[in-house]
Design a protein around this nucleic acid. Structure first.
Lengths: 122, 122
DNA sequence: TGAACATATGAACGTTTGTTCATATGTTTC
DNA sequence: GAAACATATGAACAAACGTTCATATGTTCA
């Protein structure tokens, strides 16, 4: 096969067949970007702790700040990120804003992640 | 109740009972940090694309570089990150290093993530 | 209306992160 | 052994990120 060389890689691509196979199954760029975006939101210790707390109960900002031992401001900033990612929702009652999980997928994703992390024997 | 005020929050904590309930179920700090760490690794477009490609087939570095249209160097850097997180494994065959998924959890996590992303109606 | 409070937000700062470039390592083949 | 190749790696740089601080918004209650 003569066209085994590609500029992109600037080196010899070895497995032409595999490449074609994989190229056909790549989802829309948009989808994978969104998935990465979702994981990026989950990929912060403060936010995972917030979400984990919300697995247990609906909570207001001040409660969360106390439980996590962090400032109200940083919790508030992170809740905004979580909300934009549609991971949490909120309802307002007077001065107080209560946050809770937006849907059940989040917990499933976490469960899988816990399983992976707890697999130290491999 | 007199001890409803806490320094940590510097404001009035409203839901004493909820806080106690949540505090008892917080997992070891270490565990949640590891989970966040895992998500952080998944939270990059290049790495999600690499993993997605590996869902289909075992691939060498040069193949991946070509499929994703990126330099060999950046793919190699990211594969190292993925390997440290135990998300991929590799085997060597002469000059060529083949990468593949380390375990099946990764795909499950992705499936859940896709579901979440595809829920635009909510 | 004013004080107290819960939350949100903008700017600033230091840190972390992903890519690039140059180069090193290790393998194959002649 | 030298050339060609596949991969790995270190330093450097710009971009993205999380926290802090100061302050704004909006609500309650006297």
């Amino acid at each position: 096969m003569t066209d085994e060389k590609f500029e992109m890689c600037s080196q010899t691509t070895i497995h032409h067949d595999v490449i074609q196979q994989v190229q056909q199954t790549i989802p829309k760029d948009e989808t994978l970007t969104e998935v990465a975006e979702l994981f990026k939101v989950l990929g912060d210790r403060t936010r995972t702790r917030i979400l984990h707390a919300l697995f247990e109960a609906e909570m207001c900002v001040c409660d969360l700040a106390y439980v996590l031992g962090m400032t109200q401001s940083s919790i508030s900033h992170q809740l905004r990120v979580l909300k934009q990612a549609k991971l949490v929702k909120n309802r307002k009652e007077g001065k107080v804003v209560y946050y809770s999980l937006a849907d059940h997928h989040v917990k499933h994703i976490f469960d899988q992640a816990f399983q992976h992390v707890n697999e130290d024997r491999n």
